[in-house]
Design a protein around this nucleic acid. Structure first.
Length: 111
DNA sequence: GGTGTGACAATGG
DNA sequence: GCCATTGCCACAC
């Protein structure tokens, strides 16, 4: 599917495919790129995403609990929450409201 | 080239 | 059902 050989590029690409107003998890991305157990790597890749050439909507990627664990890695901690709220995603105490409903699984939504 | 690490996830008590 | 532990893969040093 994805012709990119680099693990990071795959992560970036999938992250960019996440629809606006929807969220996904590190594990879902890891499974989609072929390494179900590399969920930690996904987070790390997104950590370096600020160094990527283009902007990566890393705010749409959260852990499986729906918690915004990675907000600290944004330039401003509140930016992640504001970006999500700007897309219509409600956040309460760093937790995505109706996370199960907003959850977007690339393995199901994509081919 | 071995070791440590990281925005996680699954399992066991 | 919550807290602690283990596993896991790719990358940097």
């Amino acid at each position: 599917m994805l012709n990119d050989d680099n693990f990071f590029e795959k992560v970036y690409k999938v992250t960019c495919l996440v629809p606006r107003g929807r969220v996904t998890t590190y594990g879902a991305i890891a499974r989609y790129i072929g390494s179900p157990q590399a969920s930690r790597m996904v987070g790390w890749a997104l950590n370096q995403s600020h160094n990527a050439a283009r902007f990566i909507p890393a705010h749409r990627v959260i852990n499986r609990n729906g918690l915004l664990t990675g907000k600290h890695h944004f330039r401003h901690e509140k930016m992640m929450q504001e970006l999500l709220e700007n897309e219509g995603v409600k956040i309460i105490e760093d937790l995505v409201v109706d996370f199960k409903i907003l959850f977007w699984d690339p393995n199901k939504e994509l081919i």
